[in-house]
C-alpha cells in the first residue's frame, strides 16, 4: 500500500514551483530563505517528498557510479620531456617572438646609441683623420695639394672641419643602414 502511494506520488511528479529548488536543496546550494520555505512545503507534500527521496538516490548512485580517474604517475616526466624538446628546437612561432624581441631591443639601442655613441665614434674618427692631415700639412705643406686631397689655398683648419664633417656623415649613414636592417626585419 505504502509502495503504491509512493509510486503514485512519483508518477505525479513534484509541484512545479518547487521542482528546481528541490535540485538545489539536494546539493545544499539553495539560499536559506527559499530553503526554509521548501522545508515547510515538504512537511505536508507527499509528491515533493517522494521526488526529493528519488533525487537523493539518483545523486548517490551517480556519485558512486561515475569513474574518477587520475593522471598516471609518469605524466609529469612525459610533459617535462616534451617541453624540454620544444626548448631545444624552438618552432617558428617562438623564433618570430625572439626576432621581434631582438628587433625591439635593436630599435631601443639605436634610439639610445644615436645620442652619444654614434656621434662620439664619428668625432673620434674625424679627429684622427684631421690630425693626420694636419700633421702631413705641417711636414709637407704642398703634399696634400699635390695629392689632390685639399684644394689649393684651403687652410689646414678648414681641411680639419671638412674631414670631421665627412666622418659625421659616415656615422649618420651607418645609423641609417642599421635602422634599415631593423625595418627589413620587421617586414620579414
Amino acid at each position: 500500500m505504502n509502495q503504491s502511494i509512493h509510486e503514485r506520488a512519483l508518477s505525479l511528479g513534484p509541484c512545479a514551483e518547487y521542482e528546481f529548488d528541490l535540485f538545489e536543496h539536494s546539493e545544499g546550494s539553495l539560499a536559506p530563505e527559499p530553503a526554509a520555505l521548501l522545508q515547510q512545503h515538504l512537511a505536508h507534500c507527499a509528491r515533493c517528498r517522494a521526488y526529493a527521496a528519488e533525487l537523493a538516490q539518483l545523486d548517490a548512485t551517480l556519485a558512486a557510479a561515475l569513474p574518477r580517474p587520475e593522471l598516471s604517475p609518469g605524466f609529469d616526466a612525459r610533459l617535462a620531456a616534451r617541453i624540454g624538446e620544444l626548448r631545444r628546437t624552438p618552432d617558428r612561432a617562438s623564433a618570430l617572438v625572439a626576432a621581434e624581441r631582438e628587433h625591439q631591443q635593436l630599435l631601443g639601442a639605436l634610439g639610445r646609441g644615436i645620442d652619444w655613441r654614434t656621434w662620439l665614434n664619428a668625432a673620434a674618427l674625424g679627429s684622427v683623420a684631421g690630425g693626420v692631415l694636419l700633421a702631413l700639412d705641417a711636414v709637407a705643406p704642398q703634399l696634400l695639394e699635390t695629392l689632390g686631397l685639399v684644394p689649393a689655398g684651403v687652410s689646414p683648419s678648414t681641411t680639419f672641419a671638412v674631414v670631421l664633417g665627412a666622418a659625421a656623415l659616415a656615422g649618420g649613414l651607418t645609423f641609417a643602414r642599421r635602422l634599415g636592417s631593423g625595418l627589413l626585419l620587421r617586414r620579414g
Binding site: 503504491s4 503514485r8 512519483l10 508518477s11 528519488e54 539518483l58 545523486d59 551517480l62
Partner: peptide, 17 residues
C-alpha cells in the same frame, strides 16, 4: 539532465501509474 535521468530510470510501473 538529472530530471531526464530520473524519468528514464523510473520503473515502467511507476511511469504507467
Amino acid at each position: 539532465a538529472r530530471k531526464r535521468l530520473m524519468e528514464l530510470a523510473r520503473p515502467a510501473e511507476v511511469q504507467a501509474a
